[in-house]
Write a protein that binds this DNA or RNA. Structure first.
Lengths: 239, 239
DNA sequence: TTATTTTAGTGTATAAATAACACTAAATCG
DNA sequence: CGATTTAGTGTTATTTATACACTAAAATAA
């Protein structure tokens, strides 16, 4: 118990579980939150859709494995990535004991280098409220947890910006919040809060549409470290 | 990539990392937040203090492993347990690739069945701001993260109650908040908020001390499911 | 060419939550 | 029996949230 780790030669004495890294990849497509799923071709759960993932290699960290997986599936580098939770129930995979470290990735709307475009692909984007349930393994549970984490972090982090392109309007940002929180927000209050937060940088650009043109903004990465960002929309949330 | 999991016989083709479960065990001792550490007896990090942990067995879930570990170290069952984070840097253990799933446990002040009492033990409680740093492996990092999680969850969960005995005074509860948050709270505002939250149940008991005796309360587990518990002391926190 | 529709953006009155701090209460201590 | 100690309540100013009405600038329709 004290010396809980065996010496090197001891490792072989233990039966080891397999470790995978699964990445719940979100993106905004047509103003709707989507998640990337892959279709399984073999037993178990043949034909079911699953969260993309793969075995960890001994020479890469968990996050490196997640980034590799992400790039393999989407071709995208340089995205927001965050560890979600580790799922380790004994029977989650019928073949072998598998422990899965789940990550969340947010891919920007304009970074669509993705090979998941055509209808017949075995890699596809699904709107988060229309996934082909049940998913393989315990992936319904993982997805549900990822969404819940997304919702709760939206309010006190700048996470929403990770889903937007470089330039965006304030109402587009509001739309993301509404998408993820699943509720309407007041326009005036949104404008006020987001401006007070001081995390937006005005650009000279406008976008024209049907009504009045809209100003485009960019996310200020260089935020003056002094005051912290808090952006709370509701009080009664938690994970 | 699509079929990211090999069939059963394939598992042996991969080199597998070892998986441990480490449990950061907190308790309140003499009104101060303490963490349980064990002293290593062998290389690597011989003599250094470490967060208790052990290898996962194939027939137990992650949480079961954490509970087993916890009971081995403290003799305590029935405690608050929550998964913290999974640490998997390649070089965190010099012997072998080890991925560690860290948990937080909160042990109630009155449940001191612990064999960590005497000074010469290799299992000991340390005040969280006086741990014998550096700890073994990356355990300084794990402990720091555990504390930060504890702080942020304190405000919107009933987590603090897990550290208190069955009966406690409101000022004792306030003291826990101050311990963990590391700042003084206003007495009047604390009384008001905790009472409005409706999570305390008054008991007929009092405790006598030097000044005016104090009323004892108990935590209401049977909270009427309707209104959610929010108990925020500061706005500018996150993890 | 003017009225209507559409989307963008601002302002304001009220309600609610928070923070600061002064006060009262019940016991022991000297 | 007054001072001290710890417990607990009350009051007010300030900040923040909420609801909702208003103005603005473009396209489109009459």
């Amino acid at each position: 118990m004290q010396d809980e780790r065996p010496a090197l030669y001891d490792v072989s004495k233990y039966q080891l579980p397999a470790v995978t890294v699964d990445v719940v990849i979100f993106s905004l497509i047509n103003r709707t939150l989507h998640v990337l799923l892959v279709q399984r071709k073999r037993w178990p759960f043949e034909g079911r859709w699953a969260i993309p993932g793969g075995f960890i290699r001994l020479d890469e960290s968990l996050e490196e494995a997640a980034r590799r997986e992400l790039e393999e599936e989407t071709g995208v580098r340089d995205v927001y990535l965050e560890q979600l939770y580790t799922f380790g129930d004994v029977q989650r995979d019928p073949r072998h004991r598998v422990i899965s470290v789940a990550y969340i990735a947010l891919v920007r709307a304009d970074a669509q280098t993705i090979r998941a475009s055509d209808e017949n692909s075995d890699v596809r984007w699904f709107p988060v409220d229309h996934v082909p349930a049940p998913l393989a393994f315990d992936h319904d549970q993982i997805l549900a947890y990822a969404l819940s984490r997304l919702r709760s972090k939206l309010e006190y982090t700048t996470l929403a910006f990770q889903l937007l392109p470089e330039l965006f309007s304030i109402l587009e940002l509001k739309h993301i919040y509404e998408q993820i929180l699943g509720e309407k927000l007041d326009k005036g209050n949104f404008y006020r809060k987001i401006k007070e937060a001081g995390i937006l940088e005005e650009t000279p650009y406008m976008r024209e549409g049907r009504g009045r043109p809209t100003r485009l903004w960019r996310f200020r990465r260089d935020r003056p470290g002094d005051k912290q960002f808090v952006f709370r929309w509701r009080e009664d949330r938690r994970e």
